[in-house]
Amino acid sequence: MLQLEEIKELIKLCAANDRLGQEKLYRKFYPALFLLCRKFFPGQEDALEALNDGMLKVFTNIGKYSDDKGEFFNWVYTVVRNTALDKLKTAGWPRHMEVGEVLIADEGNPLKTLESADIYKLLDVLPPATRAICILYYLEGFTIPQISEQTDIAAGTVKWHLSEVRKRLKPVLLEHYKK
């Protein structure tokens, strides 16, 4: 229970705009949130920028958090994830694309058995929009309609991106599983 009390105290300090409290909260959640942002951006600088922008939103809106919104970390995680997605959108990822009919077979989650370092290497070869959709679907567990709503991209385009993920990563995954 000490950790819960510590987090509640940090929330109070952050709501009072206490810089040391903000720093402690940032440092406490940094490892998990940086990994989250790193999933979306190949460059560490962009990932760190998204994390910092997200944490600024957390500190700005911390007074709006209440226990009925769920666990505090989950709320922070959602704010930072949405900030990363917004950053991708404003960077000019394609919102609409002409796509043919794509047949999507449910092949399970090919990323489930990989180590995180291997996942980052795989994700680095994907374009930003395809990378983001891959993360939301395979790593965050969102459905295609949820991704479509979250990113304001048509469901058919989301399916195209997932097909593109499988097409681009299939040779690499086949090589990985041979080892």
Rank of each mutant, 00 (worst) to 15 (best):
L2S: 15
L2G: 13
L4Q: 14
E5R: 13
E5N: 14
E6S: 12
K8L: 06
E9H: 11
L10N: 09
L10R: 08
I11S: 05
I11M: 07
K12G: 01
L13N: 03
A16R: 15
A16K: 15
L20A: 11
L20K: 14
G21T: 02
Q22Y: 03
K24H: 11
L25P: 08
Y26C: 05
F29I: 07
F29K: 07
L35M: 04
L36H: 03
L36I: 03
R38Q: 06
F40S: 08
F40Y: 15
F41A: 06
P42W: 06
D46W: 05
A47L: 03
A47P: 06
L51H: 10
K57I: 04
F59H: 13
I62M: 09
S66R: 14
S66P: 00
D68R: 14
E71S: 14
F72T: 00
F73L: 08
N74E: 12
N74R: 14
Y77D: 11
N82S: 12
A84L: 05
L88G: 09
A91Q: 15
G92L: 08
P94A: 15
R95M: 06
M97L: 14
V99L: 01
G100W: 02
V102S: 01
V102H: 03
V102T: 07
L103C: 08
I104H: 08
A105M: 10
G108W: 00
G108H: 00
P110L: 00
L111Q: 04
K112F: 03
T113P: 00
L114V: 04
E115T: 01
E115C: 01
A117Y: 02
K121Q: 11
L122K: 05
L122H: 04
P128C: 01
P128E: 05
T130E: 12
T130A: 09
I133D: 03
C134N: 07
L136D: 04
L136A: 03
Y137H: 14
Y137R: 10
L139C: 13
F142N: 02
T143F: 02
P145Y: 01
Q146L: 05
S148R: 04
S148P: 07
E149S: 13
D152Y: 10
D152R: 12
I153N: 02
A154F: 07
H161K: 04
S163T: 04
E164N: 13
V165Y: 10
V165N: 08
R166F: 08
K167H: 12
R168N: 12
R168L: 10
P171F: 09
V172T: 08
L174T: 13
L174S: 11
E175K: 13
E175T: 06
Y177A: 12
Y177K: 11
K178F: 08
K178R: 14
K179D: 05
